[in-house]
């Protein structure tokens, strides 16, 4: 599927609570790669819906997405 390019080719998302500019058309797999995160150790929530790992390669990040990347840390 092709996407319409904006003039800048950039989108802005909320990533873990902070605004972040990303290239348009970026997949979740590519996003995790660019952040050097192991997809097996990350859970991705996009606009309050959890993404299945099998969807990462096909799912493109869209403008104004709210993304949460979480993992396990020490806790009681």
């Amino acid at each position: 599927m092709t996407t319409d390019r904006t003039e800048t080719g950039e989108i802005t998302v909320q990533l873990n609570g902070k605004a972040r500019a990303l290239p348009e058309g970026l997949t979740v797999t590519e996003l995790l790669e660019s952040l050097e995160l192991n997809p097996q150790l990350v859970v991705v929530e996009r606009n309050r819906e959890i993404l299945d790992r099998s969807e990462y390669a096909q799912t493109r990040v869209e403008d104004e997405d709210v993304l949460e990347l979480v993992h396990f840390v020490g806790g009681g």
Binding site: L37, E68, L69, H71, F72, V73, G74, G75
Partner: peptide, 20 residues
């Protein structure tokens, strides 16, 4: 063992995830 779910620190100023 119990573990907590938290945002990944994308600035990497904290420890990595517990599964490491």
């Amino acid at each position: 063992v119990t573990v907590a779910v938290r945002r990944i620190d994308l600035d990497r100023t904290r420890e990595e995830g517990i599964l490491y």
